[in-house]
């Protein structure tokens, strides 16, 4: 698995685990729904204690996760690993049109930070970069009247695709461009 796809794997596996835990909780209660306890008050008391423990468990697990995932946001200039590279980033102007991409350059070198300045000449588009395995590695919205700066460093050579990720009308699915990434 490529490092760039790790986020999708984490999201998938974390979702499955969490959904399964929720399912287990519901299944446990459904299985133990019989044999009525007439006096609800003591049961409530125990359940509230367990809920408090669960609350702190959720806070302790997801609190740090929430904060940790705020480090290295795609909005920050430091996001592209290549900023440590002494060379200035390669700037590519990207403009979405109904229904094609206009790119100022399409040739990129591996390991060299690239700064896409993304906008739209008409409606909202989504600038999604797909790698050679057709996996999404980065994206940003292309909006009329705004320039969104997307920073990315390409590690592997090959032909990457730019696909539209915001619905823009009849030919939305065919709004594709290509980037050629070559080794240094």
């Amino acid at each position: 698995m490529k490092g760039e796809h790790i986020m999708q794997e984490i999201a998938w596996q974390a979702s499955l685990i969490l959904m399964a835990l929720v399912a287990l909780g519901f299944a446990f209660v459904a299985i133990n729904s019989g044999g009525r306890y007439e006096d609800y008050a003591p049961l409530q008391k125990r359940a509230y204690r367990l809920r408090l423990a669960l609350f702190w468990g959720v806070v302790l697990v997801f609190g740090p996760t929430m904060i940790y995932t705020l480090v290295n946001l795609p909005y920050d200039a430091a996001h592209a690993r290549g900023v440590r590279d002494a060379r200035p980033a390669q700037v590519i102007q990207a403009t979405g049109h109904l229904w094609y991409w206009e790119l100022s350059e399409t040739e990129i070198a591996t390991g060299h930070p690239v700064e896409f300045r993304v906008t739209s000449a008409d409606v909202n588009h989504g600038f999604g970069i797909y790698d050679t395995n057709m996996k999404l590695v980065a994206q940003v919205q292309a909006m009329p009247g705004y320039i969104n700066t997307l920073r990315h460093t390409f590690d592997e050579a090959g032909t990457y695709k730019i696909m539209c990720l915001e619905y823009c009308g009849t030919v939305h699915h065919a709004m594709v461009a290509e980037l050629t990434v070559a080794g240094r």
Partner: peptide, 23 residues
């Protein structure tokens, strides 16, 4: 409702959304 909230909040994580928004 509870199960659906799991992939929802995960998608609301900015670094996840970066590669999963509008998929």
């Amino acid at each position: 409702w509870a199960a659906g909230a799991m992939p929802a909040f995960i998608d609301g994580t900015i670094s996840v959304n970066y590669v999963m928004h509008n998929t």
